[in-house]
Design a protein around this nucleic acid. Sequence first.
DNA 1: TTGTAAGCGTTATCAT
DNA 2: ATGATAACGCTTACAA
Lengths: 329, 329
Amino acid sequence: MATIKDVAQAAGVSTATVSRVLANNAPIKPETRERVLNAISQLNYRPNLIARSLRVQKSAKIGLVVSDIRNPFFTAIGRAVEDAAYEQGYSVLMCNTDENPEKEELYLNLLRDENVAGVIFSPTQQFNIAAHTYEGRMPFVIIDRSVDAKEADMVLLDNVSAAYELTAHLIKNGYRKLAGLFGDASTTGQERNRGFLQALQEHDLHPVGVHFVSPRIQQGYDATLALLAQSDRPDAIFTSNSLLTAGSFQAMRDKKVSVPNEVALVGFDETTWGAMVDPPITVMAQPTEEIGRTATELLFQRIQEPSRQTQLVMLNGTLIARESSARRK
Amino acid sequence: MATIKDVAQAAGVSTATVSRVLANNAPIKPETRERVLNAISQLNYRPNLIARSLRVQKSAKIGLVVSDIRNPFFTAIGRAVEDAAYEQGYSVLMCNTDENPEKEELYLNLLRDENVAGVIFSPTQQFNIAAHTYEGRMPFVIIDRSVDAKEADMVLLDNVSAAYELTAHLIKNGYRKLAGLFGDASTTGQERNRGFLQALQEHDLHPVGVHFVSPRIQQGYDATLALLAQSDRPDAIFTSNSLLTAGSFQAMRDKKVSVPNEVALVGFDETTWGAMVDPPITVMAQPTEEIGRTATELLFQRIQEPSRQTQLVMLNGTLIARESSARRK
DNA sequence: TTGTAAGCGTTATCAT
DNA sequence: ATGATAACGCTTACAA
């Protein structure tokens, strides 16, 4: 591995000069530059970013820390962040915490030590931002889940409204006995639960079942089985995340429950399969591209101006009505 | 940010002593250790991994470079790698190249500079390993796609056999006019094509259509439309990746082609939705957990013993027969 | 326009 | 058992 020293030697200049040629931020005599450039390609030299980063205490990398990489929502965000960052010459390091606070801690520390310019992050429930900004040296943008903290920018879906709209859609289409499945790992589930209840309340309805479960396919499956076995069986199931939707769908299928005739089903997030299954699933789609882009832009803004006011950007979902919640006959 | 110097000062010792306490690799007087430990927690000191890494020229991180993070196959691998690495105290940095050689270059260089202990990698077509091992300092394990190089360990599916088996299954079930959709971004598509053709040949059959396309949903959709419009319409479509399967499925649905009555459909990789759609899709499932684990283990072995012979581990898929390829009536 | 040298936060060697 | 100090590869005052 050629170092800057080797290049300097080969070009007959000092390392400082090589550094200047690389940074292109100081006057250099053209022929000197020439020599240096030659030596560089001669030796196939590439500057060691880790050394540079140790020296200047920052780098052209950002971290993206998500809670479940198998959730299509997060991979979609990942793509958007990656694209936005790439345009600015930044690389993104993606880390998966599996909703595990220990891994969360591990990766955040890792990223800090990497001198990442900042991180985009979907925290677990009990996350304490202030303890992790490292004296403001590592800016955060929080996505997907709100934390009550003013130390970070946030890009969130208006979960209450979105859940409200999705629920109102069910009610409008004639469903009255609604049950809801919500993720228990984040504020998102709670907020969506709030919107759900609010819509019911406004129509003088009561939920026939509400479960907070771990946001996985299996738990969606199990909870749905429980709902179907109830004496007061729901005529519609609201799920707050696509993994739960999948589990719920599978349970109904296995129990040969006709959707939406016997029980309607709605969920969050557009997925590969939402429109492919029979019946196609009504969903509240999140603008993943926009969330990812906005988060990245916010992060870059804060990197440039660390002291600016933190912002909360609230985005809206769009209802994609499909057959799984068709008007009740 | 407290540094080792601050700790040394606070504890009234030298930085060397602090370092030794941390590394726990030298005899330290118990009471000295006590004082150091106190200072550490007092100052909330955490060693700077980047500095350490610059010094020792390695780190407890591995890179995982995949070509498309939206492909469930790769996210499944990601989870497996992550789990296996975590058990060994390693962190994993995940990077997405989008089949873009430029990004591939970017991330590989980045990871090298990070002094990652090694990388697990699914390369694009034209990848030249030798040029990237950086004098053997950065071990590679190649997954999913073969490259003809002896410089790296590889964990691959036996693609030819898998495709052969999947095709033979179709033939056995009475299908005779087979068409195939293959990814054009990697060797994987070519190998699966080979297995496909081999099975046909053995039964004296000829494909009625073979398309090499970019492995995306949209291209699967378009290619299927083309196949359906042919005068010699296939009675079964073989797809070599789950994104293509999805596109193909959607096209058939939109064209109201009954599966499998009019046209059967089979694909690769088990996904969330494969068993949820109607009809459920027959797939050749890859052992993602095993692939990820094996790759990680191979990498650790090579890290420990850089000069060992490189290995090629060939894994088998398992056929999950479902309704989309049911016996022809 | 260029060079010298200090310093980023560690670890490892060599003394003591 | 502990301390000084050089070194990892780079950038950036400061000098020349």
